[in-house]
C-alpha cells in the first residue's frame, strides 16, 4: 500500500497558548500552598542594591528569635556574604545564587524550600536580589512583599520606580539617620509611595540603631 505523505511545503498553525509569567505565578501559588500547609509565613524583601535589606532582616531576627523559628533565603548574584552575616544570628540560611539573573523566581524558591525542615519553621524571610525593577514581574508565593528604600538613593527613587511600590504591602524607608546629611525628606518619600499605592504601610527606619523594628513587625501582622 502507498503511504500518505505530507505534501511538501504544507503550512499550518501550531497553537501554543503558553504564558511564561503565568508559569511562574502558578509555581508561586504552589509555593504558597506548601507554606500554608506548614503554617509558615513568608516575607519577600525587595529593594535596590545596598538599601539595608540584610541589615533589616538581621534586626528583625534579633527581635523575633526565641518567639518564632526563623529561616532565611538569601538571593544574590554571587557570593555568600549576606548568608554568612545572617548565619551569625544562629539562623538557618539557604543561599540562592542567581548568576546573571536579576531576580529570584518561584522555581528557585521551590528548590530552596526543599532544603528546610518545614515542620519546624514559623517564619521565612526571603531577601530578593538588589533591584527595583525585575522582582515585580516574579511573585514567589510569599504572604507579604516588602520594599526597602533608603534616603541615600536620593529624593526621586520612589517616583522613578512606581511599579514595584504598587505591588508592595509594606515599604520601609531606611537610613533616616542620614536624611539631613542627604537633604532628603523621608516624609516626602512616604507621600510618593502613598500616591502610588494608597493601601500600603510605610515605615521609617534606622537599621543601625534598630529604630522602627516594632512598627515593621506590627505592619507585617503575622
Amino acid at each position: 500500500m502507498e503511504p500518505i505523505k505530507a505534501e511538501e511545503g504544507e503550512i499550518f498553525d501550531i497553537e501554543l497558548e503558553e504564558d511564561l509569567l503565568r508559569k511562574n505565578e502558578e509555581l508561586a501559588r504552589r509555593n504558597r500552598k506548601i507554606l500554608d500547609e506548614y503554617k509558615i509565613v513568608a516575607i519577600d524583601i525587595m529593594g535596590s542594591i545596598g538599601t539595608g535589606k540584610t541589615s533589616l532582616i538581621k534586626n528583625l531576627i534579633s527581635h523575633l528569635k526565641g518567639k518564632y523559628e526563623i529561616g532565611v533565603i538569601a538571593g544574590d548574584l554571587t557570593t555568600t556574604i549576606d548568608a554568612d552575616r545572617i548565619e551569625k544570628e544562629g539562623i538557618k540560611v539557604i543561599q540562592v545564587n542567581t548568576g546573571k539573573e536579576c531576580h529570584l523566581d518561584a522555581n528557585l524558591i521551590k528548590k530552596a524550600l526543599k532544603k528546610f525542615d518545614l515542620g519546624a519553621l514559623d517564619l521565612l524571610f526571603i531577601e530578593n536580589v538588589g533591584n527595583l525593577i525585575c522582582p515585580a514581574d516574579f511573585p514567589l508565593g510569599s504572604h507579604c512583599r516588602m520594599v526597602v528604600v533608603s534616603v541615600t538613593e536620593g529624593p526621586w527613587m520612589v517616583r522613578k520606580h512606581p511599579y514595584i511600590f504598587s505591588q508592595a504591602d509594606v515599604v520601609v524607608i531606611n537610613k533616616i539617620d542620614l536624611a539631613e546629611a542627604m537633604k532628603v525628606s523621608p516624609e516626602k518619600l512616604a507621600d510618593d509611595v502613598y500616591k502610588i499605592n494608597p493601601a500600603v504601610k510605610v515605615i521609617p527606619a534606622n537599621c543601625i540603631a534598630g529604630k522602627g523594628m516594632k512598627e515593621i513587625i506590627q505592619a507585617l501582622s503575622f
Binding site: I11, D13, E17, D19, L20
Partner: peptide, 8 residues
C-alpha cells in the same frame, strides 16, 4: 507574556 501560536 504569552506565546499564542506560530505558523510553520
Amino acid at each position: 507574556c504569552l506565546i499564542r501560536r506560530m505558523k510553520v
